[in-house]
Design a protein around this nucleic acid. Sequence first.
DNA 1: CCGTATCCATTCCGATACTG
DNA 2: CAGTATCGGAATGGATACGG
Lengths: 156, 156
Amino acid sequence: MVARTRFDADPCPVARSVNAIGDWWSLLIVRDAFDGSRRFGEFQRSLGIAKNILAARLRALEEAGVLRGAPAPEGGSHREYLLTDKGRALFPVIVALRQWGEGQCFGPGEDHSRLLDRRTSRPLRPVEVRAADGRLVGPEDTVVEKVHGTEAGGAR
Amino acid sequence: MVARTRFDADPCPVARSVNAIGDWWSLLIVRDAFDGSRRFGEFQRSLGIAKNILAARLRALEEAGVLRGAPAPEGGSHREYLLTDKGRALFPVIVALRQWGEGQCFGPGEDHSRLLDRRTSRPLRPVEVRAADGRLVGPEDTVVEKVHGTEAGGAR
DNA sequence: CCGTATCCATTCCGATACTG
DNA sequence: CAGTATCGGAATGGATACGG
Protein backbone atom coordinates (compact mmCIF):
# COMPACT_ATOMS: atom_id res chain seq x y z
CA MET A 1 0.00 0.00 0.00
CA VAL A 2 1.19 3.48 -0.73
CA ALA A 3 0.20 5.09 2.55
CA ARG A 4 0.07 3.04 5.68
CA THR A 5 -3.54 3.90 6.10
CA ARG A 6 -6.07 6.23 4.72
CA PHE A 7 -6.30 9.08 7.19
CA ASP A 8 -2.69 9.24 8.23
CA ALA A 9 -2.42 12.90 7.41
CA ASP A 10 -6.00 14.03 7.79
CA PRO A 11 -6.33 17.27 9.73
CA CYS A 12 -9.42 15.99 11.52
CA PRO A 13 -8.66 14.36 14.86
CA VAL A 14 -11.62 12.04 14.50
CA ALA A 15 -10.19 10.68 11.29
CA ARG A 16 -6.78 10.30 12.85
CA SER A 17 -8.21 8.43 15.78
CA VAL A 18 -10.09 6.10 13.53
CA ASN A 19 -6.95 5.61 11.57
CA ALA A 20 -4.86 4.85 14.63
CA ILE A 21 -7.26 2.35 16.07
CA GLY A 22 -7.49 0.48 12.83
CA ASP A 23 -10.73 -1.39 12.77
CA TRP A 24 -13.56 -2.57 14.96
CA TRP A 25 -11.70 -5.66 16.05
CA SER A 26 -9.02 -3.44 17.44
CA LEU A 27 -11.52 -1.45 19.40
CA LEU A 28 -12.93 -4.60 20.94
CA ILE A 29 -9.43 -5.72 21.80
CA VAL A 30 -8.97 -2.44 23.62
CA ARG A 31 -12.27 -2.99 25.38
CA ASP A 32 -11.09 -6.39 26.55
CA ALA A 33 -7.79 -4.93 27.66
CA PHE A 34 -9.68 -2.45 29.83
CA ASP A 35 -11.59 -5.37 31.19
CA GLY A 36 -8.44 -7.16 32.22
CA SER A 37 -7.47 -9.34 29.29
CA ARG A 38 -3.75 -9.56 28.80
CA ARG A 39 -2.97 -12.73 26.97
CA PHE A 40 -3.39 -13.87 23.42
CA GLY A 41 -5.73 -16.65 24.34
CA GLU A 42 -7.92 -14.43 26.45
CA PHE A 43 -8.50 -12.07 23.60
CA GLN A 44 -9.07 -14.88 21.23
CA ARG A 45 -11.65 -16.64 23.33
CA SER A 46 -13.45 -13.47 24.18
CA LEU A 47 -13.66 -12.28 20.62
CA GLY A 48 -13.97 -15.51 18.70
CA ILE A 49 -11.47 -14.10 16.23
CA ALA A 50 -9.10 -16.06 14.04
CA LYS A 51 -5.60 -16.30 15.43
CA ASN A 52 -3.86 -14.82 12.46
CA ILE A 53 -5.97 -11.73 12.40
CA LEU A 54 -5.74 -11.34 16.14
CA ALA A 55 -1.98 -11.46 15.84
CA ALA A 56 -2.09 -8.84 13.12
CA ARG A 57 -4.33 -6.55 15.15
CA LEU A 58 -2.19 -6.85 18.23
CA ARG A 59 0.84 -5.95 16.19
CA ALA A 60 -0.95 -2.97 14.65
CA LEU A 61 -2.06 -1.75 18.05
CA GLU A 62 1.50 -2.01 19.27
CA GLU A 63 2.70 0.00 16.31
CA ALA A 64 0.02 2.58 16.97
CA GLY A 65 1.26 2.87 20.53
CA VAL A 66 -2.01 1.77 22.07
CA LEU A 67 -0.81 -1.55 23.38
CA ARG A 68 2.57 -2.65 24.55
CA GLY A 69 3.52 -6.31 24.33
CA ALA A 70 5.93 -7.24 27.09
CA PRO A 71 8.08 -10.25 26.19
CA ALA A 72 7.37 -12.17 29.39
CA PRO A 73 6.21 -11.17 32.85
CA GLU A 74 8.31 -13.94 34.40
CA GLY A 75 8.65 -17.68 34.02
CA GLY A 76 6.06 -18.03 31.27
CA SER A 77 6.98 -17.97 27.62
CA HIS A 78 4.02 -15.90 26.56
CA ARG A 79 3.67 -12.18 26.02
CA GLU A 80 1.47 -9.83 27.92
CA TYR A 81 -0.38 -7.07 26.15
CA LEU A 82 -0.94 -4.03 28.27
CA LEU A 83 -2.49 -0.69 27.51
CA THR A 84 -0.08 2.18 27.21
CA ASP A 85 -0.97 5.62 28.50
CA LYS A 86 -2.18 6.41 25.03
CA GLY A 87 -4.36 3.34 25.13
CA ARG A 88 -5.68 4.10 28.57
CA ALA A 89 -6.67 7.52 27.31
CA LEU A 90 -9.27 5.75 25.20
CA PHE A 91 -11.30 5.06 28.29
CA PRO A 92 -13.86 7.84 27.75
CA VAL A 93 -14.29 6.72 24.16
CA ILE A 94 -15.11 3.17 25.17
CA VAL A 95 -17.41 4.32 27.92
CA ALA A 96 -19.26 6.71 25.64
CA LEU A 97 -19.66 4.00 23.06
CA ARG A 98 -20.85 1.59 25.69
CA GLN A 99 -23.41 3.99 27.02
CA TRP A 100 -24.70 4.70 23.57
CA GLY A 101 -25.11 1.01 22.95
CA GLU A 102 -26.87 0.49 26.24
CA GLY A 103 -29.33 3.23 25.52
CA GLN A 104 -29.87 2.77 21.81
CA CYS A 105 -29.04 -0.73 20.72
CA PHE A 106 -30.99 -3.01 23.03
CA GLY A 107 -34.62 -3.92 23.20
CA PRO A 108 -36.53 -3.34 26.44
CA GLY A 109 -36.21 -6.85 27.83
CA GLU A 110 -32.79 -7.62 26.42
CA ASP A 111 -29.98 -8.38 28.81
CA HIS A 112 -26.62 -6.78 28.42
CA SER A 113 -23.40 -6.48 30.32
CA ARG A 114 -22.93 -3.25 32.23
CA LEU A 115 -20.02 -1.21 33.42
CA LEU A 116 -20.26 -0.44 37.12
CA ASP A 117 -18.48 1.76 39.57
CA ARG A 118 -16.39 -0.74 41.49
CA ARG A 119 -16.85 1.03 44.78
CA THR A 120 -20.60 1.32 44.78
CA SER A 121 -21.58 -1.27 42.18
CA ARG A 122 -23.79 1.32 40.60
CA PRO A 123 -23.85 2.28 36.92
CA LEU A 124 -21.76 5.24 35.88
CA ARG A 125 -23.12 8.66 35.15
CA PRO A 126 -23.67 9.31 31.45
CA VAL A 127 -20.72 10.97 29.82
CA GLU A 128 -21.38 14.63 29.13
CA VAL A 129 -19.89 17.24 26.87
CA ARG A 130 -19.18 20.51 28.63
CA ALA A 131 -17.74 23.84 27.65
CA ALA A 132 -14.70 25.28 29.37
CA ASP A 133 -16.96 27.20 31.73
CA GLY A 134 -18.83 24.04 32.66
CA ARG A 135 -21.96 24.59 30.57
CA LEU A 136 -23.48 21.48 29.11
CA VAL A 137 -23.25 21.72 25.35
CA GLY A 138 -24.95 19.86 22.55
CA PRO A 139 -24.00 19.48 18.89
CA GLU A 140 -25.62 22.77 17.94
CA ASP A 141 -23.61 24.65 20.54
CA THR A 142 -20.33 23.78 18.91
CA VAL A 143 -18.50 24.75 15.78
CA VAL A 144 -15.56 23.22 13.98
CA GLU A 145 -12.62 25.51 13.54
CA LYS A 146 -11.10 24.50 10.28
CA VAL A 147 -7.39 24.46 9.91
CA HIS A 148 -6.00 27.24 7.79
CA GLY A 149 -3.38 25.27 5.86
CA THR A 150 -3.58 25.00 2.10
CA GLU A 151 -3.14 21.28 1.76
CA ALA A 152 -5.63 19.11 -0.09
CA GLY A 153 -8.45 17.22 1.53
CA GLY A 154 -11.36 18.24 3.68
CA ALA A 155 -10.61 19.83 7.00
CA ARG A 156 -13.60 18.54 8.87
CA MET B 1 -24.04 -13.56 5.12
CA VAL B 2 -25.97 -15.56 7.63
CA ALA B 3 -26.53 -12.80 10.15
CA ARG B 4 -26.81 -9.21 9.04
CA THR B 5 -23.70 -8.39 10.91
CA ARG B 6 -21.42 -9.99 13.37
CA PHE B 7 -22.34 -8.53 16.72
CA ASP B 8 -26.06 -8.27 16.22
CA ALA B 9 -26.79 -10.29 19.31
CA ASP B 10 -23.70 -9.65 21.36
CA PRO B 11 -24.46 -8.86 24.98
CA CYS B 12 -21.77 -6.20 25.11
CA PRO B 13 -23.04 -2.72 24.33
CA VAL B 14 -19.70 -1.74 22.84
CA ALA B 15 -19.99 -4.53 20.32
CA ARG B 16 -23.56 -3.59 19.53
CA SER B 17 -22.59 0.01 18.99
CA VAL B 18 -19.80 -0.96 16.69
CA ASN B 19 -22.19 -3.19 14.87
CA ALA B 20 -24.82 -0.51 14.50
CA ILE B 21 -22.44 2.11 13.22
CA GLY B 22 -21.05 -0.26 10.63
CA ASP B 23 -17.59 0.95 9.76
CA TRP B 24 -15.28 3.90 10.00
CA TRP B 25 -16.73 5.58 6.96
CA SER B 26 -20.06 5.62 8.71
CA LEU B 27 -18.56 7.27 11.74
CA LEU B 28 -17.03 9.98 9.61
CA ILE B 29 -20.36 10.49 7.91
CA VAL B 30 -21.88 11.02 11.33
CA ARG B 31 -19.10 13.43 12.16
CA ASP B 32 -19.89 15.42 9.03
CA ALA B 33 -23.57 15.35 9.86
CA PHE B 34 -22.80 16.90 13.23
CA ASP B 35 -20.80 19.47 11.40
CA GLY B 36 -23.70 20.43 9.20
CA SER B 37 -23.45 18.24 6.13
CA ARG B 38 -26.83 17.15 4.83
CA ARG B 39 -26.53 16.33 1.20
CA PHE B 40 -25.00 13.50 -0.73
CA GLY B 41 -22.50 15.70 -2.47
CA GLU B 42 -21.38 17.37 0.72
CA PHE B 43 -20.53 14.05 2.29
CA GLN B 44 -18.86 12.88 -0.84
CA ARG B 45 -16.62 15.87 -1.24
CA SER B 46 -15.74 15.98 2.39
CA LEU B 47 -14.84 12.32 2.59
CA GLY B 48 -13.47 11.65 -0.87
CA ILE B 49 -15.44 8.43 -0.86
CA ALA B 50 -16.78 6.59 -3.88
CA LYS B 51 -20.41 7.31 -4.61
CA ASN B 52 -21.57 3.74 -4.48
CA ILE B 53 -20.12 3.08 -1.12
CA LEU B 54 -21.36 6.39 0.22
CA ALA B 55 -24.84 5.44 -0.92
CA ALA B 56 -24.51 2.08 0.77
CA ARG B 57 -23.33 3.62 4.02
CA LEU B 58 -26.08 6.19 4.05
CA ARG B 59 -28.62 3.45 3.55
CA ALA B 60 -27.09 1.37 6.32
CA LEU B 61 -27.13 4.33 8.67
CA GLU B 62 -30.76 4.89 7.86
CA GLU B 63 -31.52 1.26 8.59
CA ALA B 64 -29.64 1.51 11.84
CA GLY B 65 -31.78 4.49 12.78
CA VAL B 66 -28.87 6.88 13.02
CA LEU B 67 -29.73 8.97 9.98
CA ARG B 68 -33.04 9.79 8.43
CA GLY B 69 -33.20 10.62 4.75
CA ALA B 70 -36.01 13.03 4.04
CA PRO B 71 -37.24 12.79 0.42
CA ALA B 72 -37.00 16.50 -0.28
CA PRO B 73 -36.97 19.61 1.87
CA GLU B 74 -38.85 21.56 -0.80
CA GLY B 75 -38.41 22.33 -4.45
CA GLY B 76 -35.19 20.38 -4.86
CA SER B 77 -35.15 16.80 -6.04
CA HIS B 78 -32.45 15.72 -3.66
CA ARG B 79 -32.67 14.07 -0.28
CA GLU B 80 -31.51 15.46 2.99
CA TYR B 81 -29.81 13.27 5.54
CA LEU B 82 -30.40 14.35 9.09
CA LEU B 83 -29.35 12.82 12.36
CA THR B 84 -32.10 11.15 14.30
CA ASP B 85 -32.23 11.38 18.08
CA LYS B 86 -30.33 8.13 18.15
CA GLY B 87 -27.73 9.63 15.89
CA ARG B 88 -27.50 12.80 17.91
CA ALA B 89 -26.87 10.67 20.96
CA LEU B 90 -23.54 9.80 19.40
CA PHE B 91 -22.27 13.28 20.15
CA PRO B 92 -20.23 12.33 23.22
CA VAL B 93 -18.69 9.46 21.30
CA ILE B 94 -17.51 11.72 18.52
CA VAL B 95 -16.25 14.32 20.94
CA ALA B 96 -14.36 11.75 22.98
CA LEU B 97 -12.79 10.34 19.86
CA ARG B 98 -11.91 13.79 18.66
CA GLN B 99 -10.27 14.71 21.91
CA TRP B 100 -8.30 11.50 21.95
CA GLY B 101 -7.07 12.23 18.46
CA GLU B 102 -6.13 15.78 19.35
CA GLY B 103 -4.13 14.65 22.32
CA GLN B 104 -2.58 11.47 21.01
CA CYS B 105 -2.44 11.48 17.25
CA PHE B 106 -0.75 14.73 16.28
CA GLY B 107 2.79 15.87 16.42
CA PRO B 108 3.67 19.03 18.35
CA GLY B 109 3.66 21.41 15.42
CA GLU B 110 0.94 19.73 13.42
CA ASP B 111 -2.19 21.68 12.67
CA HIS B 112 -5.57 20.16 13.16
CA SER B 113 -9.19 21.23 13.14
CA ARG B 114 -10.73 21.84 16.54
CA LEU B 115 -14.18 21.72 18.00
CA LEU B 116 -15.05 24.93 19.79
CA ASP B 117 -17.80 26.14 22.04
CA ARG B 118 -19.80 28.35 19.73
CA ARG B 119 -20.56 30.90 22.41
CA THR B 120 -17.06 31.51 23.64
CA SER B 121 -14.97 30.13 20.78
CA ARG B 122 -12.96 28.23 23.31
CA PRO B 123 -12.14 24.52 23.19
CA LEU B 124 -14.39 22.18 25.10
CA ARG B 125 -13.55 20.63 28.41
CA PRO B 126 -12.19 17.10 28.13
CA VAL B 127 -14.88 14.49 28.45
CA GLU B 128 -14.76 12.77 31.81
CA VAL B 129 -16.07 9.54 33.21
CA ARG B 130 -17.83 9.95 36.54
CA ALA B 131 -19.56 7.68 38.98
CA ALA B 132 -23.14 8.23 40.01
CA ASP B 133 -21.98 10.20 43.01
CA GLY B 134 -19.85 12.45 40.84
CA ARG B 135 -16.46 10.94 41.59
CA LEU B 136 -14.06 10.90 38.69
CA VAL B 137 -13.33 7.28 37.79
CA GLY B 138 -10.64 5.63 35.73
CA PRO B 139 -10.51 2.20 34.13
CA GLU B 140 -9.36 0.54 37.32
CA ASP B 141 -12.29 1.93 39.27
CA THR B 142 -14.82 0.10 37.17
CA VAL B 143 -15.92 -3.45 36.73
CA VAL B 144 -17.95 -5.15 34.05
CA GLU B 145 -21.05 -6.86 35.29
CA LYS B 146 -21.45 -9.83 33.03
CA VAL B 147 -24.86 -10.84 31.95
CA HIS B 148 -26.11 -14.04 33.54
CA GLY B 149 -27.73 -15.66 30.48
CA THR B 150 -26.45 -18.99 29.22
CA GLU B 151 -26.14 -18.14 25.55
CA ALA B 152 -22.92 -18.62 23.64
CA GLY B 153 -20.34 -15.93 23.10
CA GLY B 154 -18.32 -13.79 25.45
CA ALA B 155 -20.19 -11.41 27.69
CA ARG B 156 -17.57 -8.73 27.82
C1' DC C 1 -26.92 17.28 -9.14
C1' DC C 2 -28.31 12.76 -6.93
C1' DG C 3 -27.97 8.57 -6.97
C1' DT C 4 -27.80 3.33 -9.10
C1' DA C 5 -25.48 -0.47 -11.62
C1' DT C 6 -21.60 -2.88 -13.14
C1' DC C 7 -16.81 -4.33 -13.19
C1' DC C 8 -12.33 -5.34 -11.34
C1' DA C 9 -8.48 -5.43 -8.03
C1' DT C 10 -7.49 -5.76 -3.52
C1' DT C 11 -8.13 -6.90 0.94
C1' DC C 12 -9.98 -9.41 4.64
C1' DC C 13 -11.20 -13.04 7.30
C1' DG C 14 -11.73 -17.83 8.90
C1' DA C 15 -10.10 -22.56 8.84
C1' DT C 16 -6.42 -25.43 8.92
C1' DA C 17 -1.93 -26.98 9.57
C1' DC C 18 2.44 -26.33 11.65
C1' DT C 19 6.36 -24.73 15.00
C1' DG C 20 8.41 -23.62 19.61
C1' DC D 1 -0.50 -22.18 25.09
C1' DA D 2 1.27 -18.63 21.79
C1' DG D 3 1.88 -17.61 17.76
C1' DT D 4 3.20 -18.08 12.20
C1' DA D 5 2.20 -19.65 7.38
C1' DT D 6 -0.79 -20.55 3.82
C1' DC D 7 -5.04 -20.87 1.19
C1' DG D 8 -9.58 -20.08 -0.76
C1' DG D 9 -13.89 -17.66 -0.58
C1' DA D 10 -16.22 -13.60 0.32
C1' DA D 11 -16.80 -8.96 0.81
C1' DT D 12 -15.01 -4.33 0.04
C1' DG D 13 -13.90 -0.29 -2.19
C1' DG D 14 -12.75 2.59 -6.25
C1' DA D 15 -13.59 3.89 -11.01
C1' DT D 16 -16.62 4.34 -14.51
C1' DA D 17 -20.70 4.53 -16.93
C1' DC D 18 -25.48 5.28 -16.83
C1' DG D 19 -30.39 7.18 -15.53
C1' DG D 20 -33.85 10.49 -12.91
